[in-house]
Amino acid sequence: MSSKRRTPPRYWFDGFPVPWHMRLLSRLYAAVIALRVRAYHSGWRRSVRVPVPVLVVGNITVGGTGKTPLTIALVQRLRAAGYTPGVASRGYGRQQPDQAAWVDANTRPAQGGDEPVLIARQTGALVRVDRDRVAAARALADAGCDVVVCDDGLQHYRLQRDIEVEVIDGERRYGNGKLLPAGPLREPVERGQRCDFRVVNGGEPGFGEWPMRLASDAALPLHGGRSRPLASFAGQRVHAVAGIGHPPRFFDMLRGRGIAVVPHAFDDHHAYSARDFEFGSELPVLMTEKDAVKCAGLAKDWYFSVPISAQLPEAFWVALLDKLDKLRRRGSGGKRSTDVEEGDRNE
Rank of each mutant, 00 (worst) to 15 (best):
R186L: 10
D151C: 10
P184Y: 10
V117D: 02
Y174I: 13
D152R: 03
E204R: 12
P229V: 09
Y157W: 15
D169V: 02
E204C: 05
Q193L: 13
A105Q: 04
R186T: 09
G192R: 04
R226Y: 06
G208N: 06
P221G: 05
L118T: 02
P109Y: 02
R194Q: 15
P188I: 01
D146H: 11
V129D: 05
G243Q: 03
E190F: 02
P229G: 02
A215E: 15
A231T: 15
N176L: 12
H239F: 09
D146Q: 07
G245D: 02
G206P: 10
E209R: 07
R138L: 13
V238W: 00
D162R: 05
G112M: 03
M212N: 05
I168Y: 01
H156C: 14
R108W: 06
H246N: 15
D146T: 09
L126E: 07
F233D: 06
G235E: 07
Q236P: 11
R213F: 04
R191T: 14
V148C: 06
A242Y: 03
F197T: 01
D217G: 11
L214Q: 10
A231C: 11
Q193I: 05
D196G: 08
G243P: 04
P116T: 02
E171P: 01
P184W: 01
A218C: 15
R173D: 12
A218F: 07
Q236S: 14
G175M: 06
G206L: 11
L220I: 14
D142R: 12
E209K: 13
R186F: 03
A125H: 04
L154S: 04
L154A: 10
D152F: 04
E209W: 06
E209T: 11
P184L: 05
R172E: 04
H156I: 08
P229H: 03
R108L: 12
Q122I: 06
G170L: 01
R173Q: 14
C145G: 12
G177L: 07
D114K: 00
A139I: 07
A120L: 08
V127W: 08
R138E: 12
G245V: 10
R198A: 02
P229C: 10
C150V: 15
Q236M: 11
G144Q: 08
D152W: 02
R213Q: 14
R228H: 07
R128E: 01
